[in-house]
């Protein structure tokens, strides 16, 4: 069953429950040899303002879980509830609205729009959601150290600079849930640390829940909680 994300529906679905609740989540992928399970009944919750690191080996399903939580992909079964709304029961249009207005995603590959300038990229999702705030954008630009780069195009930036733009874009919409998939995976250690510090600082400033997938135990340790994904199941650390 799917429901439309009208304000009334969303309000009715909201409860005093955690910002993110994941229950009995299953996901598998088809291969020529049959379906391969990746997630086999994942459960966890994340409160508003809290941060959680998701660690695990390459191929353990971290990105898959993040994509499911980010309403980017469909689960086989189980439930994902964000801010009281059951994402798994939403229509395609309602899920798009959820991504636009409630969730901010920072991708490992940045996924900036190459034909827009840094400034345009930063404000893009906020404008889509109708939440563009020039003062907040200005503050973000300054805190991310992008003020002198606003007129440049992504291809003219270094990897660290591009990742800072990606973080800024995700936070410009003031999401209730920020997801980051290996946000420093393409950066050297020093740049990665700097970007991470900035991200955590801004997360604290906005009060959003933060879920990050990483294979780095060092980075994971900087978040409030961490869980490890093994054989499709979560093991608390």
């Amino acid at each position: 069953m799917s429901i439309d994300a009208t304000p009334e529906n969303l309000a009715a679905e909201r409860t005093s429950a955690p910002m993110l609740r994941v229950e009995r989540l299953h996901k598998s992928y088809p291969t020529p040899q049959g379906r391969v399970p990746v997630l086999r009944g994942v459960d966890f919750t994340l409160a508003a303002g809290a941060s959680l690191a998701l660690t695990g080996e390459s191929g353990s399903g971290k990105s898959t879980l993040l994509h499911l939580v980010g309403a980017l992909d469909d689960a086989d079964s189980g439930e994902i509830v964000i801010d009281g709304v059951a994402v798994t029961r939403l229509s395609e249009t309602a899920r798009a609205a959820m991504r636009r207005e409630t969730i901010g995603v920072v991708f490992q590959q940045f996924n900036l729009i190459p034909s827009l300038t840094v400034g345009e990229n930063l404000g893009f999702q906020a404008r889509l959601a109708g939440r563009y705030n020039p003062a907040w954008q200005e503050e973000l630009t300054a805190r991310l150290g992008l003020a002198t780069l606003a007129a440049r195009y992504p291809e003219e930036l270094s990897g660290g600079q591009q990742q800072r733009v990606a973080i800024g874009r995700a936070l410009a919409v003031r999401p209730r849930l920020l997801l980051a998939d290996e946000p420093t995976g393409n950066l050297d250690e020093a740049t990665g640390d700097a970007v991470m510090a900035l991200a955590l600082d801004l997360v604290a400033a906005t009060g959003c829940a933060f879920l990050m997938a990483t294979h780095s135990e060092r980075l994971a340790a900087r978040l409030q909680r961490r869980v490890r994904l093994e054989a499709g199941l979560l093991a608390t650390q």
């Binding site: 798009a96 636009r100 991708f107």
Partner: peptide, 18 residues
């Protein structure tokens, strides 16, 4: 050429009809 951009737009919450 714009396939990556289109996917990014979808990821940022642009529905297929839009």
């Amino acid at each position: 050429q714009r396939l990556a951009t289109l996917r990014t737009l979808r990821a940022l919450g642009v529905g297929p009809p839009h």
